[in-house]
Simulated scan of single mutants.
Amino acid sequence: MHLLGLAEHGGGLLDQVEVGAKRNETGHFRPLLQGKDLTGVVVTFDALHTVRSNLDWLVDNKKAHYVAVVKRNQPLLHARLAGLPWSRVATGHIIRESGHGRDETRSLKTVSCDQLDFPHAQQAVKIIRWRRDQTTGRVCRETVYAVTSLATTAATPADLARLAREHWHIEAHHHIRDVSFGEDGSTSRTSHGPVNLATLRAAVIAAIRRAGYLHVPESRRDHTTPAEAIRLHHLD
């Protein structure tokens, strides 16, 4: 059982749909968003959904914008982005952070470009992520390309860096559901069981965040009794 979810940046799960297998996700992109008011909203998604027809529909029909990650499943577009003269482009935004046992630096460059032969593309984006493990000293460097329908007048490099980071937080939500709540190991496979359980897990995580917790394992240790849970969520 595979679920495709829709979530707010910095918020909770809005909707989800059963898709059978991950390869079927792109066919559910429009149905999942169809009934939502997306006027002026920026939509982010996995590279799997960087599909011309879906993004054309998103901008023309839903009046939304997108930030679309481009990987090698779009080989021609990926090659065009990688071949842009990035060495002559100044870094538009850079941030350095430490936490969770690693040091991380993320730099972002943008190029205003309307010749990518991709629907409504206004800017090309290059993100370089550099990570160093504080224990082993191992260094990892990753380059990510993206395109966006947001023009330079609508989104600065700092805005695009924030949107990319917020999308990563949504990815982390799925990681929490698996690691802390064992979602991938769940034996519920039939009828509406998987969807209902996923909804409950998402609701629990949202409640934990509202209670002020940054780390889910810590919050689970504090929820030892029903009375304690009621007190933590100010329901007494």
Rank of each mutant, 00 (worst) to 15 (best):
A7N: 07
G10A: 15
G12V: 00
G12W: 00
L14T: 09
V19A: 09
K22W: 02
N24C: 11
E25M: 08
F29I: 08
P31K: 15
P31V: 12
L32D: 04
L33A: 02
Q34L: 09
K36F: 07
T39W: 07
F45N: 15
L48W: 04
H49Y: 06
H49S: 04
H49K: 03
R52W: 12
N54S: 07
N54A: 11
W57T: 08
W57G: 00
D60E: 14
N61I: 08
K62M: 03
K63P: 12
K63T: 13
A64M: 05
Y66E: 01
Y66Q: 00
Y66I: 04
R72V: 13
N73F: 05
A79C: 10
A82N: 13
W86L: 07
V89H: 12
A90D: 10
G92R: 03
G92K: 02
I95M: 10
R96T: 15
S98Q: 15
L108D: 01
L108Q: 05
S112A: 14
Q115W: 13
D117T: 09
H120L: 15
H120P: 05
V125S: 02
I128A: 07
R129M: 13
R129Y: 04
R131K: 14
R132N: 09
Q134I: 12
T135Y: 06
T136G: 04
R138L: 14
V139F: 00
C140A: 13
E142M: 02
V144L: 15
A146R: 02
V147E: 01
V147F: 01
S149I: 10
T153I: 13
T153N: 10
P157M: 14
A158Q: 09
R165F: 06
E166H: 13
E166A: 01
W168L: 12
H169W: 05
E171G: 08
H175F: 15
H175W: 07
F181W: 03
G182Y: 02
S191Y: 13
S191L: 07
G193S: 14
V195F: 02
R201Y: 01
A203R: 00
A203D: 03
A203C: 13
I205W: 00
A207L: 12
R209I: 05
R210M: 13
A211H: 15
G212D: 05
V216F: 08
P217E: 06
P217Q: 15
S219V: 06
D222Q: 15
E228V: 14
H233L: 08
L235D: 08
D236M: 06
D236N: 09
